[in-house]
Simulated scan of single mutants.
Amino acid sequence: MSRQIIPFPEKSFPLVVREVSGEFSEFAAIATHFHPEIELQYIFAGGGKYYIKNTIYPLKKGTLLIIKSNEIHRYVPNLKSPWIRKISIIFSPRLFKHFSSYLRNNIPISKFRHSFLFSQEEITVIEIILKNILRESTERNRNYRAIILFQLSHLLLTCQRNELPFRSKIVLSEKQDKVIKTIFSYLDSHFNSKITVNYLSNVVNLSPNYLSYLFKKITGIRLKEYLLQKRIAEAKIILEKEPQKKIIEISGDVGFDDLSSFNRAFKRINGFSPSQYRSFCILNRRKIRDF
């Protein structure tokens, strides 16, 4: 678990907007983390689950998440449909003060729910607002800061008007929350070690069967499969940063005992081999350099 440092393009306007898309392997290397900034995430397409504080929220098109200051969070994939497209808006709490007066009863951000689901009509409005914010933050034309703050006010007012309870969330007990945090933290730090369910069950003082059941129930993914995805995600990062490194060395670095197992897992998850991915990374580097 670590504090994430958010790099803002402008220190005088602490807000950053990111539109991202990709498969789980693009996000698996991001550990459980927190930051003092407020973060809004909207799902345009795809699914999965999101862990915030002590609750698991399912994701689908039209879900908006509000992650408050210093709340522990991380994305958990849906392996049946691992692709996701989302937009993230991260801003300093002091920026919130500039537009909070527009909100009903001047409600503080801490009083907002974490997750919202919208009707199709509301989704149309929300997506127009988000695309306007993305365009203004990218183009930075005259008065773009005021327009972004106005659009954020509109977005949060729409959330306030949305009173539908999020019934499918899973609220964890104190013990369950501690178990999940411990497992995530351990796998983030020791993914390249020899890890078994039996060993992890000793770490959290649960039976192997119950730990497997609890992890699958909460996250929607088997523990062994999550570890496998984590290792492959880390391998992709090494291939991107060190394309000259031998693939057999990389397989050992991320916790595989033999090269053939690594190659099979990599191809099953990504649809191409490690060597093909390395060639793709090298080609992309050349294109960027030549440009």
Rank of each mutant, 00 (worst) to 15 (best):
S251C: 13
N162L: 05
I123G: 03
H190L: 05
R85I: 06
V197Y: 04
L200N: 04
Y213C: 13
K49A: 07
I180T: 07
N162A: 13
F166G: 07
I5S: 11
L200G: 06
F215I: 11
I66Q: 06
P7M: 05
E26Q: 14
R161K: 14
S279D: 14
P77W: 02
G62S: 04
P274L: 03
K86S: 10
N284I: 07
T196K: 12
I66T: 08
N141F: 11
N70A: 09
Y50A: 01
E122L: 05
E240C: 03
F215H: 05
E26M: 14
R286K: 07
S119W: 07
K241F: 06
G220D: 11
K49T: 09
D177G: 09
N284L: 13
S279F: 10
S193P: 02
L156S: 00
Q244I: 12
I109Y: 03
Y199C: 05
D258H: 08
N143T: 05
P82R: 06
I237D: 02
Q244C: 11
L64F: 10
I250Y: 00
L152M: 12
Y75I: 04
K267D: 07
V125P: 01
S168T: 15
N205L: 12
V254G: 03
E19R: 08
L65H: 09
T124D: 10
S101T: 10
Y102P: 00
R222A: 08
K60Q: 10
F96A: 00
K230M: 09
N132I: 08
R85K: 14
I66F: 04
S260G: 03
T182R: 03
K267M: 06
T138H: 07
K178P: 02
S12F: 11
N205Y: 10
L157A: 05
N106V: 05
L155D: 00
Q41R: 14
H190V: 06
Y277I: 02
S173L: 05
N263D: 14
S275D: 15
R145I: 01
V76N: 01
L59W: 02
S92R: 11
D188N: 08
Y57R: 04
Y277F: 08
S260L: 15
E234N: 13
F215P: 10
I282G: 04
L227D: 03
I67R: 06
F116D: 01
K217S: 15
L172A: 11
Y57G: 03
P274S: 12
P108L: 08
Q176N: 12
F116Y: 15
S115F: 01
N263E: 12
T124P: 00
K230S: 01
V254L: 06
K68D: 04
S25I: 09
F118M: 15
Y210C: 05
K111N: 09
N70G: 10
C159T: 12
L117D: 13
I43N: 02
S193N: 14
I195N: 00
Y50L: 00
C159D: 04
N141H: 13
D258S: 13
L64P: 08
A233T: 01
K175E: 10
L157P: 01
